[in-house]
Simulated assay, not measured.
Amino acid sequence: MTHSFLPFVAFALVASISPGPTNLLILAQGARHGLRSTLVPILAACLAAAATVLLVGMGLGQWLTRHPQAQHLMMWAGVLWLSWLAWQLLRSTGVTGAPAQARVFTAVDAATLQVINPKVWLMAVSVIGVFAAPGLAVWQLALVFLVIALPCMALWAVLGAGSAAWLQTPRRLRVFNQALGGLLLLSAWAAVLS
């Protein structure tokens, strides 16, 4: 074990547990559709984030730094897609089965969100730049990140599922969805505006 392992674990914990677009969408999914419905999206999101760490460590991060237009395209694709998801939450009626009811957050959605999220790429570049060291292979960093991210994201799903009983009224569910939609929109545009 290298001297950078424990600081990396702390970094991975903070990066995984802090509120962000994927965690907010997992929270909403758990609240609307139950804990079971979040398991596959959680696995997909965490695998995609770990794969991003692995790809950056294998050289893709250097390619991205040489091609800022690719970074810019990824940023705008991510912001626009997150804005669309936020719009779905904002216009949710709070009535189950209503036409404007927010759709299910799928495994493909979760993995795609991680792949086009500039925050995930910056996190991966930070992991490789700061914590990669002799004696700690890139695949080990990706694996440790995955192991830490899974329970962190699952906690967001549990919080969502735990709030489901409180969200039984259409008004509360509508307010909850709109609050999450607003936070998602804010988190999507904060990176662009900063």
Rank of each mutant, 00 (worst) to 15 (best):
F5P: 05
L6H: 12
L6K: 12
V9Q: 11
V14Y: 03
S16T: 15
S16I: 15
S16K: 04
T22N: 14
L24Y: 00
L24P: 00
L27R: 00
A28S: 08
Q29P: 12
G30L: 05
L39H: 09
V40R: 14
V40A: 15
I42C: 08
L43H: 07
A44R: 07
A44T: 12
C46V: 13
A48W: 01
A50D: 03
A51Q: 01
V53M: 10
L54R: 09
V56Q: 05
V56W: 01
G57E: 04
G57Y: 07
G57C: 07
M58F: 14
M58N: 11
M58L: 15
G59V: 08
W63T: 13
L64G: 02
L64I: 11
R66S: 13
Q71T: 14
H72D: 12
L73I: 06
M75E: 14
A77R: 04
A86Q: 03
Q88N: 08
L89S: 10
L90T: 10
R91M: 09
S92R: 04
S92A: 15
V95E: 09
A102R: 02
R103P: 02
V104L: 11
V108K: 08
T112Q: 11
L113G: 12
I116K: 13
N117E: 00
P118N: 07
L122M: 15
V125D: 02
S126V: 15
V127N: 00
A132E: 10
P134Q: 08
P134D: 09
G135H: 01
A137V: 12
V138G: 03
V138Q: 06
W139K: 03
Q140V: 08
L143R: 01
F145L: 10
L146T: 01
L146M: 05
A149W: 04
A149I: 06
A154P: 00
L159C: 10
L159V: 09
L159Q: 02
G160T: 06
G160E: 05
A161M: 06
G162D: 01
S163N: 13
A165D: 08
L167Q: 04
R172K: 11
V175I: 15
V175G: 04
F176L: 00
A179G: 10
L180I: 14
L180P: 01
L183N: 06
L184A: 12
L186R: 02
S187D: 10
S187W: 08
A188H: 03
S194A: 13
